[in-house]
Write a protein that binds this DNA or RNA. Sequence first.
DNA 1: ACATCTCTCTACCATATGGTAGAGAGATGG
DNA 2: CCATCTCTCTACCATATGGTAGAGAGATGT
Lengths: 201, 201
Amino acid sequence: MDGRRSTRQRILDAATDLFGRRGVEAVSLDVIAAEVGVAKQTLLYWFPSKDDLVQTVLTEAAAELAVVIDAAVRAAPDSPLERIEAVVRAVFRPAVRRPALLGLVREVGRLAPAQAERLHGALAPLVDRAVAYLAAEMDAGRVRRGDPRLVAGLCYATVTGIATEPEALRSVGWQADVAGLRRLRSELLAFLRAALAPAVT
Amino acid sequence: MDGRRSTRQRILDAATDLFGRRGVEAVSLDVIAAEVGVAKQTLLYWFPSKDDLVQTVLTEAAAELAVVIDAAVRAAPDSPLERIEAVVRAVFRPAVRRPALLGLVREVGRLAPAQAERLHGALAPLVDRAVAYLAAEMDAGRVRRGDPRLVAGLCYATVTGIATEPEALRSVGWQADVAGLRRLRSELLAFLRAALAPAVT
DNA sequence: ACATCTCTCTACCATATGGTAGAGAGATGG
DNA sequence: CCATCTCTCTACCATATGGTAGAGAGATGT
């Protein structure tokens, strides 16, 4: 509890980063301890087991993500496209874009059902709100009609697909520098705008 | 080399499935051997090392995927929307949709650069062709204008995002049964059609 | 000064991992 | 019948893993 970030927090940060980049099962406690610069047993003092550490990392990441997105949506005007833009811009912010946070969603699929359940619990309110909002906007004719739940899922899949498969973009010659990120963000916005725009009748 | 599928092929099948579902690092040789029903050393007879097995699994999966998609594109009429539909239908075929094949793309990000390079090599011709095709269709005004490479990347991200994050869809109440898959496929088609449709001027 | 509490450490352990060495079963060919 | 080749096995090994036991350092309260 000295001037530096607390040991616990440094462990969490390192674990979040490593789990997100390499995968939960691929990262050992020794590696995390070495990264933080403490003994492995210091980890086990703060977190009773690796499972517990994983659980904490995922839960806090989900909570952080929820806060960021929620704030972005609330600050945006009540227009579907504006809101999408706000969320995309929020997700592209460096603090969120760091490999860990979005990369962790890739790990969810491998968790035991009970753990995955808890994680979804953290994001469920956001999802429900997004779906209800999409449904209302579809009714109002401001968003292309469709199954609001699946449309929300597809938007999510697109964004997380980018997060978890940046190689796909690199393989088409894209580079993850500042200019590249700006171009990707604007292309993603155009993509989602078009995908959601109401059909011309 | 008896009546059953050869041991080598059974090992490859099991490894593909396990790697795709649980991740390369999370699956041990013992687990694969148990799944196939042979001794671990039989694996090491057919594949000198785990690394070699991983390499083979990924390379063959990429090749299989390339063949399936290539055939679908060639069989489809020369229209952007028809081609997209053909690819989506191909990817949704059970043989491809099995957790392993598409799930493996999730592993690529964790490979050493040299390995990832080889994999992208297997898919590069497909990607290049898709990008060139998109660019031509954009020029012809049949596809919404944009950076063809990034648009291709976004389509890919959407599809792989679905493959690697089915939880996202389940968390909005979607179920992976036959009817659910049909609905998802048609929603995905509408989504991509809209995202790619030329802007109304 | 003493006791207590918080935090990090060294020393160790049982198990699982990827991998090696080499034997044995069964077919094939001279 | 023997030699060879293919394939799978049992028996080991060095290392790495998650986890336990317990000691010591430093602050804090009495």
